[in-house]
Design a protein around this nucleic acid. Structure first.
Lengths: 210, 210
DNA sequence: CGATGTCTGTGACATGATCACATCCGGCAA
DNA sequence: TTGCCGGATGTGATCATGTCACAGACATCG
């Protein structure tokens, strides 16, 4: 079956109004706030997450150049406030397209629409995988997947345990113990600071991916 | 903020080709299968769920008249196979719009596109709530929410424990125990066969909704 | 070097998932 | 009716994970 939309690449490269720079660590939005417009990320990454009253948190997805911030899309389409939290994970260059301009773009620009459809479908696939992970998959597999996802070209992962816990919707202590277990098994080396992936195949196996 | 799309109601009432009747209990699709076209539900409900290798299962969402089957949308947009399972929860009247016809509709019909955007955004909100439920919410609240969602106008819920477990991504035994607890607390009466909601306010309170 | 604050390790316990098996209940046949 | 059968439900034991409390390790700064 041929894909309906092949190019879900960078959206709106041509527009160049209202660019804003945001400092790493800033909250772009929080639950309950109104959405000022469609958010386009030109540089950097936004981390979108949910937080429970207990303080437990889970990352829904990241918005990088070319991605759709589904929160923004959904808030605009429905005219409802944000339901999740958006954090600048790095320094950002973003652009905020006011609702009316967004609506006009959707109405007038077919290429934009198709990219939007493609990007929304991507995001949906991510969320579906997330549900599968959280509801049906155990901690070892989820952590192994997160390590493989977050590792750089040198097989190094440099994140605090707390951040790893938020990544997979678990708790810091659980991560600490599971990293120790992976280390004992020889899958990784080092459980704190920079973690090195010793055996990617081993981790893939634990992750249940072949 | 004004909603961009007010009417996410029934999509494609006007098309009336290729209507098909499906018997309750039939699988419309399974993971790995190719998507033959965009699925429109005219009558009945499709239950879309994920199943783990262990046999554990969780309901992602239901497709009723006017809803978008995101699985179908995503499969068509990406040209990829289904990733979840679709079951006829009731007898169905559906219509399958071939990929090319779907693409032409998206390209030519603005009202259709806007409804599609609206319905996709709805579905996304559902999935986000699901992630929140599964990742951050305890069994009592999830079960209470499911009971409130599934109860009919007479406050009666007639589902097997196994089905309730799939509804919230838990296990039959856990449902059995939690229903017994609700019954002891006087929130419901009867834990098997038809369950009656005695105190909706009480259940809402357990559900964490006010 | 020591004080301080943040991150990490670990034991104890609570909650939920899994397994094994007992019990209940509704048909159905003799 | 009685007894059997199979699916659905109840329950204890055990394992995996989440939560809480606190101790130990490390970095930073004076």
């Amino acid at each position: 079956m041929a894909p309906l939309c092949r190019n879900a690449g960078t959206i709106m490269d041509r527009t160049n109004r209202n660019r804003t720079t945001i400092t790493k660590g800033t909250h772009l939005f929080r639950p309950g706030q109104d959405c000022p417009g469609y958010v386009v990320v030109h540089e950097g990454a936004i981390r979108v997450s949910l937080t429970a009253e207990s303080g437990r948190e889970i990352v829904l997805y990241r918005v990088r150049p070319g991605d759709v911030c589904l929160q923004t899309f959904s808030a605009l389409v429905h005219g409802t406030p944000y339901t999740a939290e958006g954090l600048a994970e790095t320094d950002l260059v973003i652009e905020i397209v006011p609702p009316q301009a967004f609506q006009e773009l959707v109405a007038s620009n077919h290429a934009f629409r198709m990219r939007l459809f493609g990007a929304v479908a991507d995001r949906f696939s991510d969320l579906e995988r997330l549900v599968e992970d959280v509801a049906l998959t155990g901690i070892p597999a989820r952590l192994a997947r997160a390590l493989l996802r977050l590792a750089d070209a040198d097989d190094a992962v440099n994140v605090r345990h707390e951040a790893l816990a938020i990544e997979i919707g678990s708790a810091r202590e659980v991560i600490s113990r599971q990293l120790a277990a992976f280390s004992r098994s020889g899958l990784i080396s080092g459980t704190r600071g920079v973690i090195h992936l010793v055996s990617r195949p081993g981790l893939h196996s634990v992750a249940g991916e072949f």
